[in-house]
């Protein structure tokens, strides 16, 4: 087998990488905000807010229970039937965000619920309101606990975002397809592309590991390697 590699592929792929980063970064950040809100509703909504608990749960089950690909296609090809036309970028960003929010909601919920119940009691006992207790006692602990599953989600999303090439986005995968087709070197281009993904993921894994260690507090969370 005669393998060929050309340096000129790299700038194109790097542009694709930038778009992959943009889509993943934005959807992870927006997904974190939405996911945290969903998690808080799933944990704390009761009384008059109970319907919101139901809505949040339905949301989470729907977006975790259907394929990301179907969600993207639905937004891009399905919505125009309702008169809503989204650009490929917007459809992609929306699909990724809505999907990761559902997963992140579950990670946040798990983290919030693993904060011991006595913490809320003690916070209320000194006169903090429920919101203050969340802000100063529960969330600082939950956010530390959520780092490992959240890094996992980030890794998944970096790779999962590759499906946006199917609606014509020139992300890393989209660029790879274009170059590969043009040059009749699909296999080689895909190998290089895979290395790009791998490098990106290793970088983020190390970075989040660093954050986890920097914010570590004795007695909270899983002990690191010693």
């Amino acid at each position: 087998m005669n393998l060929v590699f050309k340096w000129k592929w790299l700038p194109d792929l790097a542009q694709g990488l930038a778009l992959t980063l943009e889509l993943t970064g934005l959807s992870m950040a927006l997904g974190a905000v939405l996911g945290l809100a969903l998690a808080l509703l799933r944990v704390y909504a009761k009384g008059p807010l109970l319907p919101l608990y139901g809505l949040a749960s339905a949301y989470v089950h729907f977006f975790r229970g259907t394929p990301l690909l179907v969600q993207l296609m639905g937004l891009y090809y399905g919505l125009p039937a309702l008169g809503i036309r989204l650009s490929p970028f917007l459809a992609s960003l929306l699909a990724l965000t809505l999907n990761t929010a559902a997963y992140q909601a579950e990670y946040f919920r798990g983290a919030i619920q693993s904060v011991k119940s006595g913490q809320m009691l003690a916070a209320r006992a000194i006169g903090l309101t429920r919101l203050q207790a969340l802000r100063y006692v529960i969330l600082p602990q939950a956010l530390r606990l959520v780092i490992p599953p959240w890094s996992n989600e980030l890794v998944y999303m970096i790779k999962g975002s590759a499906i946006v090439y199917l609606v014509g986005m020139l992300d890393l995968m989209g660029r790879a397809r274009t170059i590969g087709t043009k040059e009749f070197r699909m296999f080689e281009v895909l190998v290089v592309t895979a290395l790009f993904y791998l490098a990106l993921i290793l970088l983020f894994t190390v970075a989040l590991r660093w954050v986890e260690n920097r914010t570590r507090i004795p007695g909270l969370g899983v002990p690191g390697r010693s």
Partner: peptide
């Protein structure tokens, strides 16, 4: 205005 001391302390872990 009312202090409360718990059996299992419940100090804020973080």
């Amino acid at each position: 205005q009312i202090g409360f001391v718990f059996q299992d302390f419940n100090l804020f872990t973080h």
